[in-house]
Design a protein around this nucleic acid. Sequence first.
DNA 1: TTGTAGGCGTTATCAC
DNA 2: GTGATAACGCCTACAA
Lengths: 362, 362
Amino acid sequence: MVERDSGRGDSVASMVSIADVAAIAGVSRQTVSNVLNAPHRVRPDTRQRVEAAIESLGYQPNRAAQALRAQAARVIGYRIEPVRVDSLTTVQDRFLHALAEAVQAIDHHLLVFAVDPDDEISIYARLHRTGTVDAFVLDGIGEGDPRPGQVLRLGAPFAAFGRTGHDSDHLWVDIDDAAGTAAAARHLVARGHRRIGFIGWPEGSGVGDRRAAGWRTTLDKHGLLAECADLDLRGEDAVANGARLAAVLLDRPQPPTAVMAVSDTLAVGVMQAARDRGLVVGRDLAVVGFDDTPTAGVFDLSSVRQPLEAVARCIVRALLPRLPAGGSHAPAHPEEATSEPVGRLLAPTLVVRASSAAATPC
Amino acid sequence: MVERDSGRGDSVASMVSIADVAAIAGVSRQTVSNVLNAPHRVRPDTRQRVEAAIESLGYQPNRAAQALRAQAARVIGYRIEPVRVDSLTTVQDRFLHALAEAVQAIDHHLLVFAVDPDDEISIYARLHRTGTVDAFVLDGIGEGDPRPGQVLRLGAPFAAFGRTGHDSDHLWVDIDDAAGTAAAARHLVARGHRRIGFIGWPEGSGVGDRRAAGWRTTLDKHGLLAECADLDLRGEDAVANGARLAAVLLDRPQPPTAVMAVSDTLAVGVMQAARDRGLVVGRDLAVVGFDDTPTAGVFDLSSVRQPLEAVARCIVRALLPRLPAGGSHAPAHPEEATSEPVGRLLAPTLVVRASSAAATPC
DNA sequence: TTGTAGGCGTTATCAC
DNA sequence: GTGATAACGCCTACAA
């Protein structure tokens, strides 16, 4: 083994390269390379000798050299956002974990970076131009978000989690929010509820609007919309708002027997308000949230769960053909398959817990 | 510019290298390199020409080539853990963000990976041997954790967040847990409380034991330990346990007027139990948690906040001299400074909210 | 002050 | 079936 340690201590001492393996096995470097990348081209006994040498040295190909040679870092970039203080909705860490696993499944790595919103796009540009990452996953893309357009202009491959409203020019995956709230509404209807309230975000966020739409259309299908139309209130995502708006609903002459919220954060507020006026959640009032945060589990709150693991896998699969090192050794793309579907909606699932499990008394 | 696009589409088309800049500026590649790495060696007018060319082409040095040349990827590896379901304590995402920022401040990147606990160490080995990362940050290191020893044996530089109990052979940073609970206890004493309960984790977790110790020694200093010694209960980290144990305390003939919990998760349970028996938290019972999770903010729960941003910076600073590309261009370490301190304790701060702000009535 | 040469580790191409 | 050659982009000598 070439001893290249320049006196810096133990950490760099044992960098073993393909040449070391070749020397031990008594073959050339290329034969070692072939054993790893095209084993069929090597005679079995030679291969065994080489494999033994690899094993004994613990050789692993140097990633930087591979990246330089292949013009592909096999790295995906993902921006992490700061933790929000007033909202419980930390969906991000579940998605991050799922994304890391999905990316590892295709022999890539996940590089995360924090950006100061000012020069967000310049960070993307730098990571792309320096070849640090091959592609990006854009998270939290909402109505009118400029970032997909910007990254597209950079020429960097990417896939978005979420939609801007005009997404035909790039890959995206999103939750079918309306299907989620529709499932929740159906569940409540099946439990005998006829007055089902909705506490949502202010109009204009695509996500919030779609969740509201799922509630609305489902009630309509069951002929309940007329008696529930006035049970739709909106506020920013905060527990206090959930409590405040729920109080308004519960003070109505004909209060709802069930309340759906656009997020767990608001739903927790609803539960607080119910308890404050002596109602037992799950018996006197059904509550359903959205996101299935740890908090929902802890408070036995029914909630719509986003299939984040599936989203991550779906995103990575969509990205795969656009990656330079993409499908193993294939030229990544024959010219024809350009018109594949660019978008995909994934249906969430309802997790029923004590807050909505019981049927209405009458 | 060398057009190297092998028909794969737009994404790889615009890879601009140092040779392109040199051609435009009418100098050799090395002069361009000098402009970037040793500007003083270049005549001002030449430098300006080169800088203009760099600007016009948007040139950025290729990271893989730099890594190969420098034998340093300028990447730090960090393992992310899956989200826990029963616990609210998502300290991880706050730390992750802080770590990303700290790492970026020294011109490195953060690579995150998920591991299946079985072959955790083999992942570390692979990342190290392939040169994918230069060093690791080990998080959640507790009493007797084998990982620092394993990574040490790999020869990979690393720093641990947390302590195993025998940490003299590696870098570590940890929260001064006892100082955190001591601050909380002093705060409660100052508010007039004399019966202050503690709900902790079962003995044996270093972290939990140290937090308990902070409570105990502070009460002792104020001569309150005798009357509080029986107010120390333990259970696994779950809201339900917090509620159950708090109920036990509140059922005592002389119930506490304040309860500290070893985590926000348990503290939330305490708040639930208090409310369930008609007590108003903050008036009839003071409650303090630990970790300052978003949940604490939402429920107005006083909590001890870990200085995760400082931990991240401290870890990165400690790691810096061990990094191959460490202090700019210095040989990373003259042989002498080997006996620098390897460990560091950081004091948390108490965030006072409504759950404990008021003085006791009498 | 600027340019020339060589090599970091890997792999694709093409001889043999 | 195996080995020599070259190139990916950069940087550190050293030479001019």
